[in-house]
Design a protein around this nucleic acid. Structure first.
Lengths: 189, 189
DNA sequence: AGGCCCATGTAATCTGTTACATGATTCC
DNA sequence: GGAATCATGTAACAGATTACATGGGCCT
């Protein structure tokens, strides 16, 4: 039941609409949690009904109106209770790892191609997270920002995302290399 | 629908029972996929019904009998088709990241404690993966094993697990440090 | 005697994904 | 004129988690 807490955490500092949340929780961004738009709209409805977030209508011209939400006091309490409880261990679930696990029994060239795709995606995320971090810390350097900044939470999760994607990139390259060495392709040189 | 493929990948090289699979897919191990025992027993039943794995009864003394399974030819075909298809992007879902995202609004000492717990768990996994890797590569050094070994798939996924846990450990320490610097605790010195 | 490991499941519930639905505005 | 962005959902289905159930053997 952590989606609700992820949503609450996203609505602590700023008001956001379901649509804006959806962008933040998108696969392509998601520095601390992933969810689909439908889940978010449903969760916002529930959270509002339970008084953990408060919404208000924002009237717009030349765009559809939207409802923006912010965590309430009781939402913050809920999040604090969540923080006090033990964290579930995180676990791995990744198609690509399953394919690599079967590396000795499947087509090496296909695997190499998929590792390349994942590497490309990781590189894009590295760029994105780098830009987000620069934006959050502004003029300060990282050490200074982390000592004195007033909203470091999102920065810290973003650091984790960055490290993870770098790791992914390195691993993809390494594995692709290993596979290429074992299966020297006749065509590509 | 990748659980079935994860199970197939685990049954390529060796026969295993549901119970043995459950240990391999446990949170504490899970070098390439995580699943609960119930899921595995259910999946094995389905896979056997569809002819993708074949089971046989092993009679034991002083232990309950068990059924062990192995991937069939058609299971391997299924896995190859899976490998040929594009991989879904992997995404982050971790309680602890949600809590860190909210770091500016929650109890810092609780967070530091949880980061410590996670760090401990990560350290244990690093040990475990290190031992598994040594065991798999035997006398050879890593480069040699990866060039000439005949079952490198599990080794490669284990490398990923190791890198991930190392990253986790570093991050937990770093973040706990940052939080301690910002909230010097009166009690602990 | 109590707890853990082996060994295998069922049932109920909760969470997440896929498919579908609508409609205006802005950019190319 | 067609695609992308903004904006919000419903419905059906698949997948995962939690709770419950059973029973023998081994170790302390």
């Amino acid at each position: 039941m952590a989606l609700r807490h992820a949503v609450l955490a996203a609505l602590l500092d700023e008001e956001r609409s379901g649509y804006q949340l959806a962008k933040a929780f998108d696969v392509g961004v998601a520095n601390f949690w992933h969810a689909l738009p439908q889940q978010l709209y449903a969760e916002l409805t529930k959270l509002e009904r339970e008084g953990l977030v408060a919404g208000r209508e924002v009237v717009q011209e030349s765009r559809p109106n939207k409802r923006v939400f912010r965590a309430t006091e009781s939402g913050l309490t809920e999040l604090r209770d969540f923080t006090a409880a033990a964290s579930k261990p995180s676990f791995i679930r990744d198609d690509l790892l399953v394919k690599v696990q079967a590396a000795d029994h499947v087509d090496a060239e296909q695997l190499i191609e998929q590792l390349g795709d994942r590497a490309t995606a990781a590189a894009a995320k590295i760029e994105l997270f780098g830009a987000l971090l620069r934006q959050m810390r502004g003029d300060a350097d990282e050490e200074e920002f982390l000592r004195t900044g007033h909203r470091i939470g999102p920065y810290l999760t973003c650091l984790r995302g960055l490290a993870f994607e770098r790791e992914t990139l390195d691993w993809c390259r390494r594995i692709a290399d290993v596979l290429r060495t074992r299966h020297p392709s006749g065509s590509t040189l």
